[in-house]
Simulated scan of single mutants.
Amino acid sequence: MTDRNQTKESPEKKAAGLYAASLVKDGDAVGLGTGSTVAYTIKELGRRVREENLNIVGVVTSYQSEMIAIEAGVPLTSLAETPKLDIAIDGADQFDSNLFAIKGGGAAHTREKIVSMSADRFVVVSDPGKKSEILTVAVPIEVMPFGRELVTKSLKDLGGEPVLRAAAKKDGPVITDNGNFVIDCTFGEIKTPQELAAKISQIPGVVEHGIFMNVDEVVIGKTDGTIEIIKL
Rank of each mutant, 00 (worst) to 15 (best):
M1S: 14
N5W: 14
Q6M: 08
T7N: 10
T7R: 13
S10E: 07
P11V: 10
P11T: 12
E12C: 15
A16I: 05
G17V: 02
L18I: 15
A20I: 01
V24D: 06
D28I: 01
D28Y: 10
D28E: 03
D28N: 08
V30A: 06
G31F: 05
T34K: 01
T34A: 00
T34P: 00
V38L: 06
V38C: 03
A39G: 02
A39K: 10
E44P: 01
E44N: 06
L45E: 04
L45C: 02
G46N: 02
G46L: 01
R47D: 11
R47T: 11
V49P: 01
R50S: 14
E52T: 03
N53T: 13
N53E: 15
N53C: 12
L54P: 05
I56T: 11
I56F: 10
V57T: 15
Y63P: 00
S65G: 12
E66T: 05
I70E: 15
G73S: 02
G73L: 00
L76C: 05
S78F: 02
L79Q: 04
A80F: 12
E81P: 00
T82P: 00
T82Q: 04
I87D: 03
A88Q: 01
A92H: 03
F95E: 05
L99W: 04
A101W: 00
I102G: 04
K103E: 02
G105R: 02
H109P: 00
T110P: 00
R111E: 06
E112K: 02
E112I: 02
K113V: 07
S116Q: 03
D120N: 12
V123K: 00
V123D: 00
V125S: 01
S126I: 01
P128S: 10
S132E: 15
I134K: 10
T136M: 14
V137S: 13
I141F: 07
I141L: 08
M144H: 04
M144P: 01
F146S: 08
F146K: 07
L150S: 06
V151M: 10
K153H: 10
S154M: 11
S154F: 06
D157H: 10
G160S: 13
G160L: 12
P162M: 12
V163T: 15
A167S: 14
A168F: 13
A168G: 14
K169E: 12
K170H: 09
I175F: 04
I175L: 06
D177A: 12
N178E: 13
N180V: 11
F181I: 07
V182I: 15
I183D: 09
D184N: 08
E189C: 02
K199R: 12
K199Q: 10
I200D: 12
S201Y: 05
Q202R: 15
V207R: 11
E208M: 06
H209G: 03
M213W: 07
V218H: 12
V218C: 11
D224M: 14
D224W: 13
G225R: 09
I229E: 09
I229D: 08
K231G: 05
L232V: 09
L232W: 12
